[in-house]
């Protein structure tokens, strides 16, 4: 029994306790930030599946968050339960994500970045221009918070635990998925598509699946985002959110399972830490991203890994 083997579960336990107890000491603002972190982490985990595990770049994740948010907002303001909003949002995310996967069958890398970037802006234009459905620039106000097993979640703290529960569920589901044959197929796709094909993996199908599942997880995040902010309009779902989610994945560590947890935490908390710098925090953030890319190709999670690997011979 080496210390290294126990480090993982110990950190996991500490983080879980922190996430459960910390909000009890916080006021409204702190609880809101933690809820936002949970939602963004879900979206970033979806992108991490597409980008980090299957190696398909997507600059449209923000638009998928928007699809989920609009599905949830429209249905819950019409009196339907959030669960239906989630089902519809995730279903739409799967379908549109599957369709967006088709270009990935033809083009790769930077071309794919451009196609998905274009798709994000097109979806934003639809959210904004089709006001008969989405309320256009006026947005949708008064999105209700759900009742979970009869329990109202209007209290910020209760809603935070709902967000956290969703995050844990998504984490568990993605963990199981990645351990399944599908997960191994995704990684084979990233490492060497040609070899994957020769091993009998249907690369076509798994490429589409990687897009569809990653995007649907993004939409699921959107269905939680809508009741969190209780008012949505098209602007949060423009290209900016997609770029931010991409940077979160990269900073945390693309292809590292818990990378998005860390990446999203930095993106949410950095403006707080750098409050003294006023508007400069984005300058610092951009510099951080560049430094991470140049010096830590594995992201910040890569450091932890390197430390563990470095220690293993000594500990073992």
């Amino acid at each position: 029994m080496s210390a290294g083997r126990l480090a993982g579960p110990a950190i996991g336990l500490a983080v879980t306790i922190l996430l459960l107890l910390l909000p009890l000491t916080l006021r409204g603002y702190g609880i809101y930030l933690m809820s936002l972190w949970a939602v963004l982490t879900i979206a970033a985990m979806g992108l991490n599946l597409t980008l980090g595990y299957a190696g398909q770049v997507s600059l449209a994740q923000g638009a998928f968050v928007g699809i989920g948010a609009y599905a949830a907002a429209l249905l819950t303001t019409a009196g339907w339960p959030l669960a239906l909003g989630m089902a519809v949002g995730v279903g739409l995310g799967l379908i549109v994500g599957w369709l967006l996967g088709y270009p990935a069958l033809r083009v790769q890398h930077h071309y794919l970045a451009f196609v998905t970037l274009g798709a994000n802006t097109l979806l934003f234009l639809v959210f904004r221009n089709e006001d008969w459905l989405t309320g256009g620039v006026y947005g949708i106000p008064g999105i209700p918070r759900p009742r979970i097993f009869g329990l109202a979640t209007d209290d910020p703290l209760v809603f935070y635990y709902f967000c956290l529960a969703m995050l844990l569920l998504v984490t568990l589901a993605l963990g199981l998925l990645l351990r399944s044959p599908w997960g191994r197929a995704f990684e084979a796709l990233r490492e060497n598509p040609v070899r994957a094909e020769s091993l009998g993996i249907d690369t076509r199908r798994y490429t589409l699946l990687a897009f569809a599942i990653g995007s649907a997880v993004g939409s699921l995040a959107g269905t939680v985002y809508a009741p969190l902010v209780q008012y949505i309009d098209p602007y949060p779902f423009a290209l900016g959110m997609s770029l931010n989610l991409l940077l979160m994945v990269v900073v945390g560590g693309s292809g590292r399972f818990f990378g998005p947890w860390l990446g999203a935490a930095i993106a949410v908390l950095l403006p707080e830490w750098l409050r003294f710098s006023e508007g400069l925090y984005l300058v610092f953030y951009a510099l951080l991203v560049i430094l991470v890319l140049v010096f830590l190709p594995g992201g910040l999670m890569g450091i932890a890994e390197r430390l563990r690997l470095g220690r293993r011979p000594v500990a073992g």
């Binding site: 409204g28 603002y29 809101y32 930030l33 936002l36 902010v229 008012y231 309009d233 602007y235 949060p236």
Partner: peptide
């Protein structure tokens, strides 16, 4: 808008 909501909360 999203940040403004957080700011009012704060």
């Amino acid at each position: 808008p999203g940040v403004s909501r957080a700011a009012v909360q704060k």
